[in-house]
Amino acid sequence: MSSKKILPGREASVIASHIGQLTWRGIGIFIILFSALLTGAVLLNNSTRFLEKNLVLVDKEPLFLPIYLSGVVLSIFIGLLASMRVARELDKGTLELLFYGPVESRQYLSGVAIGYMGIGLASVLVILFWAKLSEMLLNLAPDAKLFGLLLSVFLMICAFLALSLLIAILGGKARNAIAYFVLAVFLLLSFQIGDSLLSTLLLGGSATATDALSLVRKILYSVNEVLRWLSPFQITFEAAQNLNHGAITKYLIGNILLIAETLILMTFAILRLAGKGVRGER
């Protein structure tokens, strides 16, 4: 098989720029950039207050949490946009029209993925901009780790994007896709947040730690043991923490996991679309 057969090629790049054009046209890009900025601003404000009160910040990295959370918000937004676009194209029949021509599921989905990754990259650059700005405003020493963190955030966006595309293909109809999407976000985030909330609670003192609570904590913990290898949010969180602690190898493993996850989920989505076809019969 020649490399021409493996690489999605020209059709994918045409579709990617088409996605860029449509997203730019729609309100999508504004929502993305606006939410990146808004989240950044709100969290920056909080960080400043922490600093003012002279509280010790987790890991002494005031920008870590704001950037990570902006990344999560961005991932969800971009994933939602991508998954809605694909589900709508399937619903409406515009995808079928592409398949009448030279486009196949591989070209289509990689085109869509590349398009939204471009949007993700643009948003990450916006985060970089305000991170640099806040470094200046807060008189923080410029930190090279910032770039490592942003790389992981970008890879998180890519991995979640791939998951969203798979969800759209599995959902078939736009309505189903949105339901599955919300469910996936809810599951991924609630276990992660629930686990860290409960662990803080339990660490805070045995007075509030009932037996039932520690049972819940145990369940959440074991689910999380699995999720930390699967959830892009969790993988990125840990990768970023490793970066802060200077555990570079672990940080890199996290990134590799994210890339692998992106590729695996994309492959699943492509095979599934090729298997069931645009008309969704058999």
């Binding site: 045409v14 579709i15 046209r25 029949g93 079928e96 029209l97 021509g101 030279p102 486009v103």
Partner: peptide, 29 residues
């Protein structure tokens, strides 16, 4: 399929594009 032209029974389009952009997209494809 690249050498086949299709006028489908039901026409579906990207409503948010202009006719020119739409044809340009297919031209590039």
């Amino acid at each position: 399929r690249r050498k086949i032209g299709v006028v489908a029974e039901y026409q579906t389009f990207y409503d948010e594009m202009t006719a020119r952009e739409y044809l340009d997209f297919f031209g590039r494809l």
